[in-house]
């Protein structure tokens, strides 16, 4: 990639440590606009931490993150985030529509309440993820796949250019997985950049066009066909991977 080309996300020399223990070590990553990138690696490889570092949720020990050449703080409005489903308490007293409207809080700014406009955007997003029949459903009464769709809808109403998603396929059934993949590919087709923390090596080639292999250090990143090689996989998973392309 040439230096003059714009980069949706540019991570340089990023190191993150939790109490002296490095979780990410000297990470470099360039994400060109309009790709569907999966971050794969074993448990404890730092995938979630990398997403959080890009979002400024964890403080790096060293290094730098730029979103379209600017720090994240200046670009919040164009970044959408789907946290891990397990990171929230689904018994929280609220319903589906309310959670999705939370995606508009950033654009609304302080104090202003969501109104008709936000409601409409939320409805559209819920239709896109096939959850329009559940708007008044209490969120504790959703299945894992439905919870995931609600989180995706919340990110969609952020109307972002870049989406960061932490394990959107975790614990969802095959139908939901299909629906989510279609949605992600639609986003890419509309010129969005999507970064997904992913667990299932079998589906990387089918679902994504870019891949980053991560195990505390960056092993490799680039287009799937060049990067997703058995050599790189062995290096990432320490030879314990029985998967062959």
């Amino acid at each position: 990639m040439q230096a003059s080309k714009p980069k949706a996300i540019e991570v340089t020399d990023l190191t993150v440590a939790y109490q002296d223990k490095p979780v990410l070590w000297d990470i470099d990553l360039d994400v060109p606009p309009g790709v569907l990138l999966s971050i794969v690696g074993p448990n404890g490889a730092g995938k979630t931490t990398l997403i959080k570092a890009i979002l400024g949720l964890v403080r790096p020990a060293a290094g730098n993150v730029l979103i379209y050449d600017k720090p994240y703080e200046a670009q919040r409005r164009i970044v959408g985030y789907v946290p891990q489903r397990g990171s929230v308490d689904w018994d929280f007293p609220t319903n589906v529509l309310d959670v999705v409207m939370m995606g508009r809080y950033g654009a609304l700014g302080w104090v202003r309440r969501p109104g008709k406009n936000e409601r409409e955007l939320a409805m559209q997003a819920l239709e896109k993820v096939g959850m329009e029949a559940y708007i008044t459903r209490q969120i504790s009464q959703l299945s894992g796949g439905q919870q995931q769709r609600v989180f995706l809808a919340r990110a969609l109403v952020q109307d972002a250019t870049i989406y960061l998603m932490d394990e959107p396929f975790q614990g969802v059934d095959a139908t939901t997985e299909r629906a989510i993949v279609t949605l992600l590919q639609e986003l890419r087709a509309n010129g969005k950049t999507v970064v997904v923390v992913h667990h299932d090596l079998q589906t990387v080639t089918d679902y994504f066009d870019w891949v980053m292999l991560l195990n505390i250090r960056r092993i490799a990143s680039g287009p799937v066909e060049e990067t997703f090689t058995s050599d790189n996989l062995r290096e990432t998973y320490g030879g314990r991977v029985a998967f062959m392309k």
């Binding site: 919040r76 985030y81 946290p83 809080y105 950033g106 952020q158």
Partner: peptide, 9 residues
């Protein structure tokens, strides 16, 4: 409800 998301926006 979701501190991480709150911080991200």
């Amino acid at each position: 409800f979701d501190e991480g998301f709150a911080a991200s926006i």
